[in-house]
Amino acid sequence: KTVHVNGVQYDFDNPEQAERFAKEMAKKAGLQIQFHGDQIKIE
């Protein structure tokens, strides 16, 4: 899974790890999470 945070890309082999990371980042920055198939976007 790939997580995009403000244009920066983070790759994870483990989907659960990717989602946990995305939730942490979104919570910290007060941003929205969008799921697009294999990609998670935080903007």
Rank of each mutant, 00 (worst) to 15 (best):
V8C: 15
E24K: 04
I40P: 06
D11P: 03
L31D: 04
N6K: 03
V8S: 03
K28Q: 12
G37D: 09
F35H: 09
F12R: 00
H36A: 11
Q32Y: 06
G7T: 01
Y10P: 00
F12C: 08
M25S: 04
A26R: 03
D38S: 09
Y10S: 00
R20Q: 14
Y10G: 01
M25D: 02
V8D: 03
A26K: 02
G30Y: 04
I33Q: 04
A18P: 00
M25G: 00
V3C: 12
A18I: 01
M25A: 10
Y10I: 03
L31M: 11
K41E: 08
K23D: 11
A26P: 00
I42Y: 07
G37W: 07
K27M: 14
K1G: 05
F12G: 01
Q9W: 08
Q17W: 06
D11I: 14
I33D: 03
I33W: 03
Q32H: 10
A18N: 00
N6W: 08
G7Y: 02
H4P: 00
A22S: 04
G7R: 01
V3S: 01
R20F: 10
Q34L: 11
P15I: 12
D13Y: 02
I40D: 05
Y10K: 01
P15T: 10
K1N: 12
I42T: 07
V8R: 06
G30M: 05
G30P: 01
G7V: 00
N14G: 03
Y10H: 03
N14R: 04
F35K: 05
Q9D: 05
F21W: 09
Q32P: 06
I42P: 07
K28V: 12
N14Y: 06
Q17D: 14
Q32W: 04
F12D: 00
Q39A: 12
P15Q: 12
K1S: 12
K41T: 12
G30I: 03
Q17N: 06
Q32K: 10
Q39L: 13
G30H: 09
Q32V: 12
E43A: 07
K27I: 14
M25W: 11
T2S: 09
V8K: 10
E19M: 15
Q17P: 00
A18H: 00
M25H: 05
R20V: 10
Q9V: 13
R20N: 11
N6I: 02
H4M: 14
Y10E: 00
M25K: 01
I33E: 05
G7D: 03
N14E: 07
A18Y: 03
T2E: 02
H36Q: 10
K41F: 15
Q39R: 07
K41I: 15
N6L: 12
G7L: 02
V5E: 00
V3K: 00
V3P: 01
E19R: 09
G7S: 03
G37T: 08
K41D: 07
Q34N: 10
M25N: 02
I33P: 06
A29L: 15
I33M: 07
H36T: 10
V8P: 00
G37A: 08
V5S: 01
V3T: 01
K27N: 14
